[in-house]
Computed example of a mutant assay.
Amino acid sequence: MDIAGSTALVTGANRGIGRRFVDELLARGAKKVYATARRPERIDTSDSRITPLYLDLLDEKSIADAAAAAQDVAVLVNNAGIATGAQLLTDDLDRIRQDLETHLFGTLRVIRAFAPHLASNGGGAIVNILSVLSWVATPQGSASYSVAKAAEWNMTNGVRVELADQKILVQGVHLGAADTDMMAGRDALKIDPADVARASLDGVQAGAIEVLVDDPSRFVKAALSGDPAQLYSVPSGN
């Protein structure tokens, strides 16, 4: 699809990857971008094409209200998320549920609210920002976050199947680490968040259902067909 002249909505648009999506959508000629956040007053509205909206993935009313206000959406970017830092064996289960409620159920709530609008508008695109941690767990990352992103990844696949006959592209975007507030203080090679937005929207325009933004995501995806021991520092024998 062509971004020029379209209307988009981006969750978690006040900073990081979400903010770069807003910038890139506008640069490609989007006529309107609904920029959503839990603190919409922090969104830069210097461009008249930006409309800030309140949206919290854990607040179903806020999602319904946003969907009612933005019925002209053709491109939906699900970027908002959290990282509790919870470990699976030692931390409170409620913290693990929070990761799942946000990334899996929260994102799904947004899709369920907006998919009918995309369909009635003749189709469009849904972009889910995932992670290399959808496929692998690392000592440096949160195991709880990995579980939530793995669930969100296959939810993305399931939604794609269910929307296949409605002219709606469902794209999953995988990356290692981007230079955002969420990754602040982490010792990792970080890409520019703008690169994520550019790669994803290039993929939307090309009809790509999956975008691997960086080398870590490409390496792990390729390794999935081999011995999983190459991804973990654990013995592969008995």
Score class of each variant (00 low, 15 high):
residue 180 T to G: 13
residue 32 K to H: 04
residue 219 F to C: 00
residue 140 Q to D: 14
residue 26 L to V: 09
residue 139 P to K: 08
residue 46 S to F: 02
residue 95 R to Q: 14
residue 165 D to H: 11
residue 180 T to N: 07
residue 220 V to R: 06
residue 181 D to L: 09
residue 59 D to W: 00
residue 43 I to A: 05
residue 18 G to F: 04
residue 180 T to D: 11
residue 191 I to A: 10
residue 235 P to N: 06
residue 71 Q to W: 06
residue 75 V to D: 06
residue 233 S to M: 12
residue 80 A to H: 03
residue 119 A to E: 14
residue 25 L to H: 10
residue 142 S to C: 03
residue 23 D to Q: 12
residue 116 P to A: 11
residue 172 G to C: 03
residue 2 D to Y: 05
residue 107 T to D: 03
residue 216 P to F: 02
residue 1 M to L: 12
residue 225 S to I: 13
residue 92 D to G: 05
residue 90 T to E: 15
residue 126 I to Q: 08
residue 82 I to E: 03
residue 65 D to I: 07
residue 174 H to L: 15
residue 44 D to R: 12
residue 210 E to I: 08
residue 34 Y to G: 01
residue 146 S to N: 12
residue 35 A to W: 02
residue 4 A to N: 13
residue 76 L to H: 09
residue 63 I to M: 03
residue 4 A to Y: 01
residue 69 A to T: 02
residue 148 A to L: 01
residue 222 A to N: 06
residue 44 D to G: 11
residue 203 G to D: 06
residue 118 L to W: 07
residue 231 L to E: 00
residue 41 E to C: 08
residue 168 I to Y: 06
residue 232 Y to N: 10
residue 15 R to V: 08
residue 212 L to F: 07
residue 140 Q to E: 15
residue 159 V to R: 00
residue 37 A to F: 08
residue 121 N to W: 07
residue 25 L to S: 08
residue 153 W to K: 13
residue 228 P to D: 10
residue 126 I to K: 01
residue 3 I to C: 10
residue 91 D to P: 03
residue 49 R to S: 03
residue 105 F to A: 04
residue 127 V to T: 09
residue 133 L to Q: 11
residue 196 V to N: 07
residue 73 V to S: 06
residue 201 L to P: 03
residue 54 Y to P: 05
residue 237 G to P: 00
residue 101 E to P: 00
residue 182 M to A: 11
residue 57 L to E: 03
residue 103 H to W: 03
residue 25 L to R: 01
residue 178 A to C: 05
residue 153 W to M: 14
residue 100 L to V: 15
residue 41 E to T: 13
residue 134 S to H: 11
residue 66 A to H: 00
residue 110 V to C: 01
residue 34 Y to A: 07
residue 205 Q to P: 09
residue 159 V to D: 04
residue 48 S to K: 10
residue 175 L to R: 01
residue 102 T to H: 10
residue 31 K to P: 02
residue 65 D to L: 09
residue 233 S to N: 14
residue 160 R to N: 07
residue 167 K to Q: 15
residue 134 S to R: 11
residue 26 L to W: 06
residue 66 A to D: 03
residue 162 E to K: 13
residue 190 K to I: 06
residue 98 Q to L: 15
residue 117 H to M: 08
residue 50 I to N: 00
residue 136 V to H: 00
residue 95 R to F: 05
residue 42 R to Q: 15
residue 154 N to L: 14
residue 53 L to E: 02
residue 22 V to A: 10
residue 96 I to A: 07
residue 114 F to M: 11
residue 132 V to D: 02
residue 80 A to R: 03
residue 133 L to N: 12
residue 208 A to W: 07
residue 84 T to E: 09
residue 212 L to W: 06
residue 82 I to Q: 12
residue 92 D to A: 10
residue 229 A to Q: 14
residue 73 V to H: 13
residue 168 I to C: 12
residue 132 V to T: 14
residue 195 D to W: 04
residue 39 R to G: 12
residue 64 A to G: 09
